[in-house]
Design a protein around this nucleic acid. Structure first.
Lengths: 345, 345
DNA sequence: GCAGAGTGTGGGAGCGCTCTCACTTCGTCG
DNA sequence: CGACGAAGTGAGAGCGCTCCCACACTCTGC
């Protein structure tokens, strides 16, 4: 009987190596390796006995050793600039994670969360370019993402989720057509007979903010309506609440508001209710994003679908394609927005 | 002039190695390694010249090579059982991530998101125990987390966030005292003169659901009040909405509800409003979690603070301690809940 | 004066894996 | 029937790093 078989030695018992698997299977390390990695050029018998040995030993390839020779890490980074609560508590973030992990499920890639601290961009970039990850998905938020350009130079496969704003170079991204979404929303209000349509726009340093404002302007201009009733918010409920008072003060005659995010729309509706303004009776409201919230507020909110999960999934799939080499062409995918009409308009 | 210096060769230019750093610094690989890893037993001159070489070359140690010999991966996993939207879109999840990444900021540890697919537990466990990560933080949700026990056996340092339900063995976790929180909430309602206090409890297979129900029972029992008005929800808005009708049908005389989550409380309040029931006039409401939402609904919701970020931070710090060897004793940390009184009660 | 401790340094082994290459054993065709 | 390719295999090198060890060399104290 062996001494200290389980308790005493458990903490130091090393993970089984390929060598051990090979020995147990009665083949060479080379054959064992081939058997494990797809089984090409391996006889059925050898394959079977290696598989049995793997199962018996509970073998998992040592990622570090493999990575050292293949120069791949089997992991990709989800880069999140600005680790403030704004990003993480953002409802989109959860969707991004869902979609991305769904896309990665079939593959053996690990998802590494790379939270880029504001000041420490250099560190993040160094990490990305020195071969620690095989690819990167960047959640784009603000204008100054120097990450983008650096990624291009580093030749690391990447995709942005959301059009990055940093300049002129061709960057691969997945996004939804926010201009068109805002146009749909605004045209819907116009078709309902509204004429004095204001907008609570998003931040001016975010692509979604800019594009949705532009879509509203285009729709208003196309119908010959004035596009002067604009106030900016920060995409939060509080921002929506805060926007209402100045908007009504400057434009008391408005009969509809296109709000660039559901959260802001909810805030706006709440404040309007307090002021005794009826929705949609006095003012019709259309939001954006189609959060779960939109269906459950009173009145249910007309809104534009923001297909975050699908976008993230597409980003993941695209990255996978790049990594497998089946697609090397730069590509951007633009999803189509969809209007969901509910009682608020 | 060299041919193809940047464009042509950029994509294949290998990352600088320690060997190159050493050569450039005029020292041996050993000395360079020592200089990079803390600088012990290295002369100031050697240290300086290595540092200069590192900067000049933009050197980053190859993690795989290092990991191969040190048998550490410098990464920890955040394990998330059940990758359905329930978990990821959970507001706590964002908080967990925030807290954890805050705790890890100072260290060089990478955060790997390990999303455990329901059926594929074996794969997750194998990943965890075969040395792919140095430690794990597990977001505990449901009763059957076999992950817990396996982690114990695997001797991988770990912490659970939220008390795991899987059985009798001593498991290290960080949690908030949900029993006490529920008691605080219920006692508050009693002190306000309410006597027929119902509860919308959480799922019976989650620690938070169980504990908050128990806290309510204890408080009710201590005051000699009947603890029969119980209905279960799933911690979502929809769950709160759905709970109201059966609750009122079975107990039409209730004058208060302790709702085990803010989301359910919001749903409940919304449905009560539709039924013409006044809050807090007819029925007082207390929620749980203190989400941002709680402060902005009408009426603002009395609730109990659930310090998710702090808990995650504590979990991260604890894990760090374990990894550095400064603390090996099993430990559980229980945070104190705090009642926030607003207009709904 | 010299043993002993302490300090800085370089050489070399080896972590666990993949991959190239050489080898054997077939089947198949001219 | 010899030549050739294809298929299956194993030996060996080496990825970039850390760490052990041997080797100088300097400094102390008797």
């Amino acid at each position: 009987m062996t001494v200290g078989t389980s308790a005493a030695r458990a903490q130091t018992r090393p993970a089984p190596t390929l060598e051990e698997v090979a020995e147990r299977a009665g083949v060479s390390r080379s054959t064992a390796s081939r058997a494990i990695n797809g089984g090409l050029r391996v006889s059925p018998e050898a394959l079977a006995s290696v598989e049995a040995a793997v199962a018996a030993l509970g073998y998992t390839p040592n990622r570090a050793a493999r990575s050292l020779v293949t120069r791949k890490t089997d992991s990709i980074a989800l880069v999140i600039p600005e680790p403030d609560e704004r990003v993480l508590s953002d409802p989109f973030f959860a969707g991004t994670l869902s979609g991305l992990s769904a896309a990665l499920q079939a593959s053996d890639l690990q998802l590494i969360l790379l939270i880029a601290r504001p000041g420490d961009n250099a560190r993040t970039l160094r990490y990305l370019r020195n071969g620690h990850v095989d690819g990167a998905v960047v959640v784009s938020h603000h204008r100054d993402d120097s990450v983008a350009v650096a990624l291009l130079d580093a030749r690391v496969p990447y995709v942005f989720i959301g059009r990055p704003l940093s300049g002129d170079r061709a960057i691969q991204y997945v996004d939804v057509d926010n201009v068109r979404g805002a146009r749909l929303a605004t045209e819907h209000l116009i078709s309902r007979g509204r004429r004095r349509i204001a907008t609570i726009a998003g931040p001016e340093d975010m692509a979604a903010g800019i594009d949705r404002l532009e879509g509203w302007r285009i729709a208003m201009g196309a119908s010959g309506l004035a596009d002067d009733a604009v106030v900016h918010g920060d995409f939060t409920i509080e921002g929506g609440i805060a926007a209402i008072r100045p908007l009504l003060a400057a434009h008391p005659d408005i009969d509809a508001i296109f709000v660039a995010s559901d959260l802001m729309a909810v805030g706006a509706m709440r404040h309007l209710a307090e002021l005794g303004v009826r929705v949609p009776g006095d003012i019709a409201i259309v939001g954006y994003d189609n959060l779960a919230l939109a269906a459950t507020v009173q009145p249910p909110l007309t809104t534009v679908v923001n297909p975050v999960v699908a976008m993230a999934k597409a980003a993941g799939t695209f990255l996978l394609d790049q990594l497998s080499g089946s697609s090397t062409a730069a590509r951007t995918t633009i999803f189509s927005p969809e209007l969901i009409v509910r009682a608020s308009s």
